[in-house]
């Protein structure tokens, strides 16, 4: 049975990525896991004394976002797993993919240019880094991708 992983953080492409992952898992009869990484260092200006609280809040948010994703899958008749990891996002996703021997990672992309510190092709660079580390293909889903789910 193929194993799919959809990493999510609630951004612009999150819904489209989740729906695409659910549809692919249904079509291939594959197992699907939604993954969220608690990475306080990805935020600017995190004071050392606040790190614990920031991690706790990110975890809270992760649990909620994964719950939403799992409910969407359940509504489409698909049972899924959810998982939260702590650490640097790229490392943790790669590690998770290797640990679970996943076959594909699905990520959502931001709408338009990201215009952030990572530059405009940040998502491609991020995907390339994962491919290199985990040796697993990465599928990028644009926010405007429409996936119609069949409710089973």
């Amino acid at each position: 049975m193929r194993k799919l992983v959809c990493a999510t953080r609630g951004g612009e492409g999150s819904r489209a990525a989740q729906l695409a992952a659910i549809a692919q898992a249904q079509a291939e009869n594959a197992a699907l896991t939604f993954l969220y990484v608690v990475d306080p260092h990805s935020l600017a200006g995190v004071d050392e004394s606040l790190e614990t609280a920031v991690s706790a809040e990110l975890r809270w948010m992760g649990q909620t976002l994964l719950q939403i994703a799992q409910n969407r899958a359940r509504a489409a008749g698909l049972d899924t797993e959810i998982c939260i990891r702590h650490g640097r996002t790229t490392d943790q996703i790669s590690q998770f993919l290797q640990d679970t021997q996943a076959d594909l990672l699905i990520l959502g992309t931001p709408r338009g240019t990201t215009a952030n510190v990572f530059g405009d092709d940040a998502i491609e660079q991020f995907a390339a880094a994962i491919r290199q580390q985990a040796k697993i293909p990465v599928k990028l889903i644009h926010p405007d991708t429409v996936t119609k789910l069949t409710i089973q």
């Binding site: 953080r9 990201t114 952030n116 998502i123």
Partner: peptide
Amino acid sequence: IQANRGLGDEKE
């Protein structure tokens, strides 16, 4: 976290 929203959008 709220203030950082919009940063680090490299992964959805």
